[in-house]
Design a protein around this nucleic acid. Structure first.
Length: 397
DNA sequence: TGGGGTCCT
DNA sequence: AGGACCC
C-alpha cells in the first residue's frame, strides 16, 4: 500500500515521529543540582550573556541570549549561575537520549536538548492488540472534530508513547520537557512548540497548512538559515506563503533544483528525512572566548587548559582521535562571526601510548605548530577565541 | 552572542 | 579549510 502511494509521488504520512524538547535545559540542570534555585529567577551565564533562563526569570522579561546588564535591569533579583563548563549539561543530555532509546532505537539528537524519536514500529506493534488509545495532551489545530480520535489511532498511540517518555524523563531524571507528535520531523518539531512548558501537542494531518501558517517568516522553518533567508528576500520572498507561491524555476535559478525542491517541500510541511540514530560523537572539542590573547605564552597556557579538559573527556569516551584541529578567531574590524580560521594535522598514534602528562605536552607542541600557521607570533596579534578539536575518533588498534 | 555540534562543498 | 545549518 505504502509503496503504491510513494510511486505516485505522494508523501509518506504513515510514520509516527516524536520530538522531545527539554524546557530551558541548562536552567533545569542547575535547578536539579540546587533545588533552592527553583522558585528564584535564574539565568545561566556564559561570559556576559544569559544563554538561557528559567520560567520565573522569563516572567520578568528575561530572554535567551540577553546581555547580563539588560537582564539585571529587567530583573534585579536575577540569580546567575556560570555555565561555560558544559560537563553537567553534556552528561544530562546523554542520559536523556539513553532514556529515550528504551522506547525505540531510532533516536536522533539535535543539540544537547532536543531528540527526535521514530516510534512507528512501536505504534504498529501496540495497535495489533486491538487496543484503542485516547489521544494524550493537546491537539493541533484546537477544535472538536467528530471522530477525531477514532480516525487517528496511530497519532493517539504516538501521543501515549510520548507521555510515557516524558514520565520516564521526569521520574528517572527529574527533567520536564515538551513533546510534538506528527508524521515527520519538521512537523513534530514545530508542533512541539505550540504549548510550553512541560506539555505535549499532536498534529492532525489536516492541520499542516495551519501550522505552517503560524510561522512569521520562512526563516522560522528549520533548515532555512539566515544566509538562505537573505537570498530568498533578494527574490522578494519572505513569508512561508511567499515561498509556497514562488515559481519553481525562480527558486531553481537561485539555488539549484535540489535545494529548491527541498525548500518548497519544507514550506508545505513535507519532510521525508529519516530519523537517523546519532551514535557516539564525531568530534570532541573545547573552546574558550576572551577579550584578548596577544602572546604565544598566553595562547599556550589557554591551549594547555583546553587540552587537559579534553583529555578527561577522551578517557570517558574510550576512543582515540587521529586528527587534531586548532581554530582561532581574530579581532576583526567588521565580521564578528564567520571569521574563524582553522588548521588541522594528523595525530601520531604512539602519542597516546605514554602517560597523560607526556601526551598533553606533545599535543601542545602540535597545537603550537598549527597555531603558528595562522598567527604570525613575531607580529602583534589579538585573538578573541581558541578552540581545540579532536576528530576522526576511532577505537585503538 | 556562548559553547558546543552536524553535514556538505 | 571553510561554509551552511542546528541548539
Amino acid at each position: 500500500m505504502i509503496l503504491f502511494f510513494l510511486l505516485l509521488g505522494e508523501e509518506d504520512t504513515s510514520r509516527v515521529i516524536v520530538h522531545i524538547d527539554v524546557d530551558c535545559f541548562y536552567a533545569q540542570v542547575e535547578m536539579i543540582r540546587d533545588p533552592s534555585l527553583r522558585d528564584k529567577p535564574l539565568g545561566i551565564q556564559q561570559k556576559y550573556i544569559v544563554v538561557t533562563c528559567n520560567y520565573v526569570a522569563r516572567k520578568h522579561g528575561v530572554t535567551k541570549l540577553m546581555g547580563i546588564k539588560q537582564a539585571k535591569e529587567l530583573c534585579p533579583e536575577l540569580v546567575l549561575v556560570k555555565g561555560e563548563d558544559l560537563t553537567h549539561y553534556r552528561e544530562m543530555s546523554y542520559r536523556i537520549t539513553v532514556t529515550l532509546q528504551k522506547f525505540s532505537p531510532l533516536v536522533e539528537r539535535l543539540g544537547f536538548d532536543e531528540n527526535f524519536v521514530d516510534v512507528t514500529e512501536t505504534v504498529d506493534a501496540r495497535l495489533k492488540s486491538t487496543f484503542s488509545p485516547q489521544l494524550n495532551g493537546h491537539i493541533f489545530p484546537e477544535m472538536e472534530i467528530e471522530g477525531t480520535y477514532e480516525r487517528h489511532k496511530r497519532l493517539a498511540c504516538g501521543s501515549q508513547i510520548a507521555a510515557e517518555m516524558r514520565q520516564a524523563l521526569h521520574s528517572d531524571l527529574g527533567i520536564t520537557c515538551c513533546a510534538g507528535i506528527a508524521h515527520n520531523k519538521l512537523l513534530a518539531k514545530l508542533v512541539a512548540g505550540q504549548h510550553k512548558p512541560n506539555q505535549q501537542t499532536s498534529l492532525l494531518p489536516g492541520g499542516v497548512g495551519k501550522l505552517m501558517g503560524t510561522l512569521k517568516t520562512a526563516r522560522n522553518i528549520p533548515g532555512i538559515g539566515s544566509r538562505t533567508f537573505k537570498r530568498l528576500q533578494t527574490l522578494g520572498i519572505s513569508t512561508v506563503q511567499d515561498l509556497q507561491d514562488a515559481p519553481a524555476d525562480v527558486l531553481q535559478a537561485e539555488f539549484g533544483s535540489q535545494t529548491a525542491q527541498v525548500m518548497q517541500q519544507l514550506c508545505r510541511g513535507v519532510d521525508p528525512s529519516p530519523v537517523t540514530p546519532t551514535g557516539p560523537p564525531q568530534t570532541i572539542s573545547d573552546e574558550d572566548s576572551f577579550k584578548k590573547c596577544a602572546s604565544l605564552q598566553d595562547a599556550k597556557e589557554r591551549m594547555t587548559g583546553l587540552l587537559q579538559s579534553l583529555m578527561k573527556r577522551l578517557k570517558g569516551d574510550g576512543r582515540f582521535p587521529h586528527v587534531l584541529r586548532v581554530t582561532v578567531r581574530k579581532l576583526s574590524a567588521s565580521n564578528k562571526w564567520t571569521n574563524r580560521e582553522s588548521r588541522q594535522c594528523a595525530i601520531p598514534s604512539h602519542l597516546f601510548g605514554t602517560g597523560a602528562e607526556e601526551t598533553i605536552s606533545k599535543l601542545l607542541d602540535l597545537c603550537v605548530v598549527l597555531f603558528c600557521k595562522m598567527v604570525d607570533v613575531n607580529h602583534p596579534f589579538h585573538l578573541t577565541l581558541i578552540n581545540i578539536c579532536f576528530a576522526k575518533l576511532e577505537a585503538r588498534s
